[in-house]
Design a protein around this nucleic acid. Structure first.
Lengths: 168, 168
DNA sequence: TAAACTCGGTCTTTTTTAGTCTTATTTCAA
DNA sequence: TTGAAATAAGACTAAAAAAGACCGAGTTTA
């Protein structure tokens, strides 16, 4: 239940892979796709996104490939999810017009209404949903990608007792 | 992205509704389904589940209906999710034979192997996934259903500063 | 210029989730 | 004792979302 999306897994796999490389060293999508047996196209697309958001840098051409461009300690898991999956909305109620702010006046089919929760009128849990959304966002924001990727490395101390408490 | 399931919403709606009733007072599925415009069958099924897990009590017959049977302060959101959606598994890697322990005698096709992650062999992120799963579980466990449902009530004090800390 | 990359649009397939239909079963009251 | 009103639950269908494949570019360098 409540699985993370495959794309997110692929992103983590790739990031962890590149994390181990020498600075400046590039890795091709093809390499990673074959090594980890994940679908080339999907992985490629995810990496494109991350590159467009500054987490990775892409080099085209013959000796092209990807490399990490940003300190992963400064990239939260929230950021990663948001890049790949879009803004966090735990339920349809929340539908923010959002940062993208495309007030799309052209929109031939006004699907504004389409995606909106049809329970809206009668719903008694918008506050709870908002609270949940806030808390989850906070949780994800407090978890860095670096921390995730590094997991299992520093846990000689019995599953790192403090990993749990504290911080949240 | 990462929406909670409709069934979970329905559960919250129903629980919040019943929360407002006098002790002993029953509410029928039909009432709630019509009042909140959610599909009768789906709601019914969810409530059946909650009843079977002791959160609700059901009375059959003419004056039947549901009522809350357990202090919602003692039911975590994790519990709720687990009841409705099954054990928390942030990714296929994690596939526990698990506590649910429904040795499902009907299961005609042993799909044990079927659902297993096909990246398993080459995967470099099982530790990260495990960490994430642990942290998310913890997060959900530290959030009570009562707290959620009550949201928006006690927040005259500026989004109830203490909602976060404490309790954990 | 050709090979080996990334880029990005559109399409199809698969999987998951949501919802419906139908047939019990229980209870109470007229 | 029978019928209305409720829960219980299996099997099925529809809809939505996610995953993946295909393809035709644009870039760089040997």
């Amino acid at each position: 239940m409540n699985r993370i999306h495959r794309k997110v897994e692929y992103a983590l796999i790739a990031l962890k892979h590149m994390r181990g490389k020498n600075p400046g060293e590039r890795t091709t999508v093809k390499d990673m796709a074959t090594q980890y047996r994940c679908p080339h196209d999907v992985l490629a697309r995810v990496l494109q996104t991350l590159a467009s958001r500054g987490v990775l840098k892409s080099e085209q051409g013959v000796h092209g490939g990807y490399l990490i461009a940003k300190d992963l300690n400064r990239v939260s898991f929230y950021d990663l999810l948001e890049m790949i999956l879009g803004p966090m909305e735990v339920a349809r109620c929340l539908q923010e017009p959002t940062a993208s702010a495309d007030s799309d006046p052209k929109a031939p089919f006004a699907n504004d209404e389409a995606a909106v929760c049809e329970l809206r009128e009668t719903c008694n849990i918008v506050s709870p949903i908002q609270l949940l959304n806030r808390k989850m966002s906070e949780f994800y924001r407090n978890l860095s990608v670096a921390e995730l990727i590094e997991a299992g490395r520093s846990l000689k101390s019995r599953e790192s007792a403090k990993v749990n408490g504290a911080q949240l």
